[in-house]
Design a protein around this nucleic acid. Sequence first.
RNA 1: GGAGGCUUCGCCUAGUCUGGUCUAUGGCGCCGCACUGCUAAUGCGGUUUGGGUUAACCGCCCAUCCCGGGUUCGAAUCCCGGAGCCUCCGCCA
Length: 429
Amino acid sequence: MIDLKLLRDDPDRVRESQRLRGADPSLVDALLAADDARRTAVSRADALRAEQKAVSKSVASASPDERPAVLARAKELSAQVKDAEAEQAAADAALREAQLAIPNIVEDGVPPGGEDDFVTLATVGTVPTVDAPRDHTEIGEALRAIDTARGAKVSGARFYFLTGVGAQLELALVNLAMEQASAAGFVPVIAPALVKPETMEGTGFLGAHASEVYRLADDDLYLVGTSEVALAGYHSDEILDREELPLRYAGFSSCFRREAGSYGKDTKGIIRVHWFDKVEMFSYVPAEDARDEHQRLLAWEREFLDKLELAYRVIDVAAGDLGTSAARKYDCEAWFPSQGTYRELTSTSNCTTFQARRLNIRTRGAAPDGSGRKLPSAGNEPVATLNGTLCAIARTIACLLDHHQQPDGSVYVPAALRPWLGGRELLTP
RNA sequence: GGAGGCUUCGCCUAGUCUGGUCUAUGGCGCCGCACUGCUAAUGCGGUUUGGGUUAACCGCCCAUCCCGGGUUCGAAUCCCGGAGCCUCCGCCA
């Protein structure tokens, strides 16, 4: 949810952000109205409660003569308080709904427009030239690394088995990613893939993208589409000491996506699947440090792609193509020779304080005089959260096979992966 | 899955039977000040969280005793529902 103080100070900024996203600017006015209504309801209820409290207290000390009158007044107030509290609850709910309807405020500098209006920030490496390239499905079958036919037999479309060297590749990538993350100071985490509704909602995945998410109705749990969900929920309802920030986690988990509305896209192979494993970076930082952290996450993503010796480009995703929680998003897209194009491999989003507000993750403000007194000016403030893919395994394997295919049908193994693949420089059928 | 116990403002804890003086006790930790010629001791003060009032502060007001309902003029306390934790039994990688 967005900052209500900022909304009051500068509603035009929020309206402009809505326009950039192609969202409805009038939702901003609805939110302002809901906030006003809630304030009114709260102050009315507060005043009534104060009066009722005083009268109730006087019941016990009232003389027998006065008592009936006092009691009558107390009962009257009690009924009024009940009404006022019902109104307040309704106003609270309305405000929350209005808040959830508005996505994060777009960062300054984000390109306007939609999916095709990204700006390319960098192009790295040399695009390999391959005559008559085969796609990763073909190569994966030849290597007996990927079995989509049996994936479909057992689980349905968009499922796969990784076998033999395919399975080894997954473990190699996980190891390489975790090794890099640890070296950079991330805490390695194995995160749950099932989460409660409030965790899912807090990360912003139950809004516009609710249809993308698997839900277990019998248990009221959701399957995560990314371990970002669990890593964001990890510190929910906590107050973090400022000295312990930044907190950085590298989460490994399975990810599940319904891929509703992507019929016909990437139907072959393991580029777009219902289930894959992923190593995700997640940072909690002070709000003012979010932009810098975003650049750091991007740098770590690039470092990983460099280790895989892939040609890729970095794009600045346009406002209309941002997720609900993101203020800005950079994607790294690697070259797929068989498709003759760049395809997204990793993605990093700056969610500023948007997720933290929903999940109630704050940092303690220190009193300027160090007295430990509570000072509003030094009050607790939401942190910023950021996430970035380090390695989405299935898609990365697809890219490696495609990108590093050789004329003789073998696949080149980047040096960084060899320690986990028995030192092999080439994968051969 | 069955039975029982527990959940209080960082941690521990008093209070719950017998509803109002709970505006929640004490200890630990932490912060500040004072003092002592040494980061120890002692003393004093402060220390849940959210919201409101204020230019800001001080102060004051409302809510908050796991969560949600209910009874009552009044609930940490009584009733109902739920969650989490613990113990025992059963089952199980």
